[in-house]
Design a protein around this nucleic acid. Structure first.
Lengths: 237, 237
DNA sequence: CGGGCCCTTGACGTTAGTCAAAGAGCGTGG
DNA sequence: CCACGCTCTTTGACTAACGTCAAGGGCCCG
């Protein structure tokens, strides 16, 4: 229980608040343990709560009328979701589902409203969190519009590895079907794209990725998509 | 000047506030007229202001390291931008540029901070606006991940027309290069996609689009992308 | 051992980007 | 007025990227 508190206090929503305010809010939260694949809330459902992930992984997704699923975010320890809808008594814009065993902290709308009305630091903290969410969405849009799937994977891998240079090994945090959906492609395409990264020094074995040169991969990830082949043909000419 | 005030008061940021609060805030705003192509703020620049569009069109865009531009939003009368960064003293996540002659209302950071600290209704109004922004980004992501370019155009046209049924003619609000960029494709692809909409009852002449049946187009826009050809082959068998 | 799930691979078709060229519309200057 | 250059747009030919369908391998679990 102590570690739960520590995790929550370090979460972006609470971190920037005076600690006593954060603790007071924290006590309003209810712990919720759920299994892999369990639904947390549905898209279009009236928002009743905000959540913070204490442990495990959660995906936010959109179902389109034709039945295809687009993953909009994948969250883990310390990240919060549902706040956007909960804060204004709206419906959730996405569905939320646990993609692993997960432990959440759940806060009722009413408590949020009270906190917003009485606590300016919480208000500012919420702005920060929403800003971060906004920025992540914009980043994702840029990626989708400007880069190929293979480049998005390169970026995804780079985001996982701590090193800024040299060699690096990372574990894929969840299964490839989810990675594919998150990056906006099909599992088959993901698999092929992993192959296409091999010439750039990336090897995937099971759920372990080995990057032989972080710099080289970064270069590839930022490259103009139309540049790769013109370079190829230049070399062969 | 009176109409300026009316437009601003009807803007989503102010609409939900008590009118006297809104008017007090409004007086802090400075009018700014700019020409087509003029830059309003740059991506990565320290945020100094929030803006409301009084007239004309503004695009928000991301430049990627390789130089390609991804349009993230296209805004017009009443819509506001820059608030996400301005409210937390951050850098702008996107660049902003006028894509037509435009008139803006500009609010300094300091005034915003004061307003947030002293005025709960403004705080709530900002939450609403940010929520709307968030939702639009999620919608866009879903579109990009789940539909083809041609379907996104269909959706774009449907968003322009007021009718829910029957025939409808709409004017394209800005040039096709921008539409293409906004929908995440190249002008050439846009041009071809327009052609592909003809069998679905859409005719484009200059900047005027005629939709012969809104229902039919909606059906096409929501269709499973992989469904179209299986239907085609079924018909020919 | 069999069934289900995840992942990969191959063959094939569709979609979108690239490069090049050309037409349409428009304002400018001769 | 016309020629010219400019930008926006369309079209064609070609290529790359991605999705679809089908098949098969590896793995876990009942």
């Amino acid at each position: 229980m102590k570690s739960l508190k520590n995790i929550a206090l370090r979460a972006p929503v609470f971190r920037s608040m005076p600690e006593e305010d954060a603790i007071r809010l924290l006590t309003k939260g209810r712990v919720k343990d759920i299994g892999r694949g369990a639904s947390i809330h549905l898209q279009g459902e009236r928002a009743h709560s905000m959540f913070i992930v204490i442990d495990g992984w959660v995906k936010l997704y959109r179902m389109s009328p034709c039945g295809s699923e687009a993953v909009v975010a994948v969250l883990t320890r310390g990240q919060c979701f549902g706040e956007v809808a909960a804060i204004r008594d709206e419906v959730y814009a996405t569905g939320a589902e646990a993609v692993s065993e997960a432990r959440l902290l759940q806060f009722d709308c009413q408590d949020l409203w009270k906190a917003v009305a009485t606590n300016l630091s919480f208000c500012r903290a919420l702005f920060s969190v929403m800003m971060k969410g906004n920025r992540d969405l914009v980043d994702q849009l840029e990626q989708l519009k400007s880069y190929t799937g293979t480049q998005r994977i390169a970026d995804f891998l780079l985001g996982l590895c701590k090193e800024e240079t040299g060699e690096c090994t990372v574990l894929l945090p969840y299964d490839k079907v989810l990675i594919a959906s998150w990056l906006g492609m099909k599992p088959e395409s993901l698999s092929r794209s992993f192959r296409r990264l091999e010439p750039h020094g990336v090897k995937i074995i099971k759920n372990r990725a080995t990057i032989s040169s972080v710099e080289r991969l970064m270069e590839f990830a930022d490259e103009d998509p139309s540049y790769s082949w013109s370079q190829k043909t230049c070399l062969t000419n």
